[in-house]
Write a protein that binds this DNA or RNA. Structure first.
Lengths: 155, 155
DNA sequence: TGATTACCAAGTGATTTACTAGGAATTGAC
DNA sequence: GTCAATTCCTAGTAAATCACTTGGTAATCA
């Protein structure tokens, strides 16, 4: 798993699309304006998102982008993996010669942790995020939390 | 939150330290050998880890590194933040002029998601990782999972 | 036909990555 | 006190990545 600012841009743009794309396509120019991301960089990100069928483009005047599937079917992990290029965590893909020592042990641990992070992000959809925010706006103060967070003072 | 290969190196090295540091300090040369990371790069990573008091160095022959606190008191988020430099998620820190539009909405959503990812990693300690792996080795096949993962075929 | 949009390719300065080189400071062993 | 082992420190570097610019082409609507 890799989580860089590039992934952040992609998630941000997809959120904008999910929020503003309810009636008709959204142009990259609008997203660029809304989110302060350069148009051409958005084009590159959306080329990757399109290749994974997370968005669908419509050319010509009145065109723009739709989500490729429903917001509930698109996970944060989907988006990040589309633009951020899945990286191999360990050089030894299990089959290598780092046999049984401390090296492979830590590799295993890191792989397990990576899977957890991935699953965590795979279980949050675009739709979840948007809905939770709507709910939060109505209730004005309820923090969203999937995992227990003792940081937020629950007083 | 930022999760790059640099953070991976740091977590890997700290895992190695947690596993091998039970009796006496571990030298960077050993970790370098074990994990296939260059000595000088490790030195840089450990300079950052030391500044956050996650490790403690002992010079001279027989020296090396200890964990700065118990493995249970060191979270994955601690490690990643130490080497990966916390980045500001949104340019508008809430107080800027991106007033109320779609822009600040998506920024809020992204901030909330970032908090969730951070809390998730803050709730996993080095000790957790090591213990879970020991448990797995004894039971030989039980996958570790905090969240439900439908990927692992539970047949 | 012309404007508007997605699509595509090449290049670029700045930053980051992972590393090399060359030391200095501290400490244990002899 | 000398020597070796180790941390600690600074500088530099090739390669990759980031976010962006430029300059187009292709499709589509009015």
């Amino acid at each position: 798993m890799r989580l860089s600012t590039k992934g952040r841009y992609a998630v941000t743009a997809m959120l904008d699309l999910a929020i503003n794309g309810k009636n008709g396509p959204v142009t990259l120019a609008e997203i660029s304006e809304n989110q302060g991301i350069s148009l051409s960089y958005l084009e590159q990100l959306f080329a990757a998102l399109r290749s994974k069928e997370l968005v669908r483009g419509v050319r010509g005047p009145g065109g723009g982008y739709y989500l490729g599937k429903s917001a509930d079917e698109i996970s944060i992990a989907n988006i990040i993996c589309a633009v951020d290029e899945w990286v191999e965590f360990t050089r030894c893909g299990g089959r290598q010669n780092c046999s049984g020592g401390a090296r492979c042990l830590t590799h295993t641990l890191w792989d397990d942790l990576s899977s957890e992070i991935f699953n965590f992000l795979a279980n949050i959809s675009l739709g979840d995020l948007v809905r939770r925010n709507i709910g939060k706006k109505e209730e004005e103060e309820k923090p969203l939390s999937v995992v227990a967070n003792e940081d937020t003072q629950a007083a």
